[in-house]
């Protein structure tokens, strides 16, 4: 296969820069009915915690103009069931597997990371930006001191896998947090997670989702994501994985030009499960149309 689309994240070489965004691809089984998962640059799986989590009570989602708000609350099978039941399936594909983890304490993150590293995942994405869980998670993504401490500890536990830190769009200074992740040895940062948001049903004067506040995703947030990826990528030397509203090759190219090394497709998968493939093909079309030799030539290629 042509190496035209190849990019590198830490020691990991991706055959193309397109991943799934955590929480939009489950653990792979459902999407595999729609396309060959081996075509992805990497698959980022649904976030997992130490113990199974039931998630938030329904209703959990509401559509808003060009986007949606969700408060799933990290419903997941827990670390043990993930390693025993979910990981073997996805490892059958020729695709780097990135596990997304969320803990309520530094110790939980560390345990998750070291167990998954031993279990042979290719990457670990630290979720310090989920707006929908009560404890932990986003608290680490908004407090710089706690953030430093967390990444230092987890870095020490991860030997084989690459370590990615997923940043919150609510971070007081995205550049500062990006540099902190880099300083503590993260191989990459990913952004943005969903943006805290809400919707109201005026017929019953109630919030549209039970959790009241959820995370906004989809094309509605793309300009914000693009701006933050642009800022973050200028603050660090490690690769940035950009996401937020990407649904076509053109969108991905914008993120690459803004400074992302790779991109993730999220909400667009809900609309069309083959969206990541459309994005890969759209990037290829762009390279041909504009006579660009390889995708890595686009990274940070924005002309100011």
């Amino acid at each position: 296969m042509s190496k035209r689309l190849e990019v590198k994240i830490g020691k990991l070489t991706l055959k193309n820069p397109v991943m799934t965004a955590s929480g939009t691809a489950g653990y792979g089984a459902e999407l595999s009915e729609f396309f060959d998962l081996s075509r992805l640059g990497a698959i980022v799986l649904k976030g997992i915690s130490l113990k199974p989590w039931p998630g938030n009570p329904p209703p959990r989602i509401i559509e808003t103009p060009s986007g949606m708000i969700n408060a799933i609350g990290l419903q997941n099978v827990g670390l043990k069931a993930f390693i025993d039941e979910k990981l073997p399936f996805i490892k059958k594909f020729d695709v780097p597997v990135i596990a997304n983890v969320l803990g309520t304490t530094v110790g939980e993150y560390a345990k998750l990371a070291s167990r998954l590293d031993e279990a042979g995942v290719d990457g670990i994405e630290l979720n310090v930006s989920c707006p929908n869980v009560k404890k932990g998670g986003i608290a680490f993504g908004l407090d710089l001191k706690a953030f430093y401490k967390l990444i230092r500890k987890v870095r020490g536990c991860v030997k084989q896998a690459i370590l990615i830190v997923k940043l919150s769009p609510g971070a007081p200074d995205i550049c500062e947090f990006s540099r902190a992740a880099e300083d503590e040895g993260a191989d990459a940062i990913s952004l943005i997670n969903t943006i805290p948001a809400m919707e109201i049903d005026i017929s019953c004067r109630k919030p549209s989702i039970k959790n009241v506040i959820g995370g906004l995703s989809g094309p509605a947030i793309m300009p914000i994501a693009l701006r933050m990826v642009f800022q973050a990528s200028r603050a660090v030397k490690i690769p940035v994985i950009g996401m937020g509203g990407i649904r076509a090759g053109e969108d991905a190219v914008k993120f690459l030009l803004a400074g992302a090394t790779a991109v993730a497709v999220g909400t667009a998968i809900f609309v069309n499960p083959r969206a990541p493939i459309n994005v890969i093909e759209g990037i290829e079309d762009y390279l041909k149309r504009f006579n660009v030799e390889k995708v890595s030539d686009l990274i940070g290629g924005l002309q100011l």
Binding site: G23, T24, A25, G26, E30, L31, E33, F34, K46, G55, P57, P58, P59, R60, I61, I62, E63, M68, N70, I72, Q75, T267, I269, F270, P273
Partner: peptide, 17 residues
């Protein structure tokens, strides 16, 4: 009948108690 985003089982948006 529940609100659904994906319909294919990946979003967990249509959870039923």
């Amino acid at each position: 009948e529940e609100r659904m985003a994906c319909g294919i089982g990946v979003c967990l948006g249509c959870a039923v108690k």
